[in-house]
Design a protein around this nucleic acid. Structure first.
Lengths: 240, 240
DNA sequence: AGCCGACATTAGGGCGGTCTAAATCTCCGG
DNA sequence: CCGGAGATTTAGACCGCCCTAATGTCGGCT
C-alpha cells in the first residue's frame, strides 16, 4: 500500500497521481457505473464503494486533476480515455484472477470474487501475462464476464436479461453477475451457470417468483436472483 | 489498502493495532534480524526497510503498545511471542507464494521474491491453505528457505555457510538467500541451487574469489555470492 | 574524567484517505 | 417565480505513515 507496486508497467507516465489501490477502486466503480451509459454521480460512487460523498468529491478532484476523469453535469463524471484504459486494466486483472483461482486452485464460484477484489491491485504485469497464458488466454471469467484484452476494444454488456424471456423459451445462460455472493452460492447448487440452458415456465411477477426447469429439475428463482442472470434466448415459444 | 484485508482469520483478537501491510513488513524485518540471535536496532530495521530511523521509532512505539514487540536495551527490540506468531505467518505466506509462483506459473528463481513480497500481504487464509495443499505441503521454498508450519516450532537457520568449507570439500547446497536478485540470476546460470553438490577448490580471500567445481564446470564465486550460499559439508578433505 | 561520535528520540510537517457537520447548489413542483 | 428537498461541496478533524531538523542518550577513547 504505501509504496505503490512498482512491478506494474504503466505505459502512460503523464499522470501526477499515484495509481494507488484506492484510486483503482474508484476507477473500477466509475467504470462499472458508466458502462451502462449514464455518467456516475458522486453519491452513486460513494454507495458502491461504501464511503461518504465528501470522500468521493475529494478523490474525484484529484482524479480530474490528473486526467483520469472528466466532469460532465453537476456532480457527475465520466472516465477519460486515459482513465478507461486503467479501469479496463483493473477489470482485466480481476477477471483473470477469478478465472485462475477457480480453475487452478478450485476456489468456488461465490468466493472467487472477494479474493480477486484484493489481489487485483497487486498483480504485476509479469504475473498477469503468465496467468493469461497458463489459462490459454480466456475471454470470459467463471461468471461469464468478458475479460478485457490487453489492448483493443471491449464490450461490457451484450447479453439480454433472463427476465425478458417468456414461458416456453429456452434460455442459454451466458453470464451471472457476481454482485451477490449468497445468490451465487444458491445458483451453484441449482447448477445454473454460464453455458447451461434453462427452460422458462413462468415469468416473474411482483408477487410470485420465476419458475424454470434446469437439468430436469423444476425450481423457482427470486426476482433478485433472476436479475443477475443474462444470456441469449435460444428458441422462443412466445409468438405474441 | 486503507481497509485491512478482512479475509485473513486472526486467532488472537487482543491487539489494538491494525495489521497493515506496513506493520507486517516491520514484523518480517524484525523477525529476520532477530533470527540471528541479536535484538534488532532501530537503524537496522530502518536500513532493511529503506525508511528513516524516526519512522521506525514511531512504528516501534505503536507495535510495543499493542504487544507485538518488546524493548530490551536502548533502542533495541525483540518480538514478543504474539509478534513472532504473526511474523512467522507473513514469512509462511511469502515462502508458500514463492514456491507456488515458481512451480505453477514458472516464475524464475530470481523474480519470485519481489512478486511474493507484495502478494504476501494480501493472501487470505483460504488461499494460503489451498496453495499449501496444491503444492503437497512443502517445507522449503525454491531458495531452500524453510516454510514455517501453520502451528508449531520453526527453525530458521540450521545450515552452515559455504565460506566455512575448505579445498577438497564436497558441499551440498541447501539454501541460497534471496536478498540479491542479480546474484541469484548469476547462480541460476551456474546451476547452483538447493540440492546440488559443489566441490571446493580454493577458499575465498580478501583479494581473490572462491573457486569451485559444479557439474564438471569450474567457476569463480565472488565473496558477495558465496555468503548467500548455505548447506552442509558432505565430505571434508581438510584434516588440518 | 570528560568529550565526542554514533545512535535514538522528539518536534513538526506533509500526503493520502477517511469521517462528520455545516454550507451551498440544482432542480422541480407548486 | 420562489421555496424546499435532495444532492454536492466545503470546512475541519483524525489516522497511518513518511520525511527533515533538532535534541537526547549512550559508550568508547584520550
Amino acid at each position: 500500500m504505501g509504496t505503490p507496486s512498482t512491478l506494474r508497467t504503466e505505459s502512460s507516465a503523464c499522470c501526477r497521481i499515484e495509481l494507488t489501490d484506492t484510486v483503482e477502486d474508484y476507477l473500477k466503480a466509475i467504470f462499472a457505473i458508466t458502462s451502462l451509459g449514464e455518467p456516475a454521480s458522486t453519491s452513486g460512487v460513494a454507495a458502491r464503494l461504501s464511503v461518504t460523498p465528501p470522500s468521493v468529491t475529494a478523490m474525484l478532484h484529484r482524479m480530474r486533476d490528473s486526467g483520469l476523469v472528466a466532469t460532465t453535469t453537476w456532480g457527475h463524471v465520466l472516465l477519460t480515455e486515459h482513465g478507461a484504459v486503467h479501469a479496463r486494466s483493473v477489470v482485466r486483472r480481476h477477471r483473470l484472477l477469478e478465472t485462475f483461482l477457480h480453475r487452478v486452485l478450485g476456489v468456488s464460484w461465490d468466493e472467487v470474487h472477494e479474493e480477486a477484489e484484493v489481489l487485483e491491485h497487486h498483480l504485476s504485469t509479469r504475473l498477469e501475462n503468465l496467468i493469461d497464458a497458463a489459462l490459454g488466454f480466456p475471454d470470459r471469467d467463471p461468471h461469464g464476464d468478458p475479460i478485457p484484452s490487453v489492448r483493443g476494444k471491449h464490450e461490457e454488456h451484450g447479453e439480454t436479461p433472463l427476465a425478458q424471456s417468456g414461458p416456453g423459451d429456452i434460455f442459454l445462460v451466458q453470464r451471472v453477475y457476481d454482485t451477490d455472493s449468497i445468490a451465487l452460492r444458491h445458483l451453484a447448487e441449482l447448477d445454473i451457470r454460464p453455458g447451461v440452458s434453462i427452460e422458462v415456465e413462468r415469468r416473474p411477477s411482483d408477487l410470485a417468483p420465476m419458475w424454470v426447469r434446469v437439468g430436469g429439475e423444476r425450481c423457482s428463482l427470486s426476482c433478485a436472483v433472476v436479475n443477475l442472470i443474462h444470456g441469449r434466448i435460444e428458441s422462443s415459444a412466445a409468438a405474441s
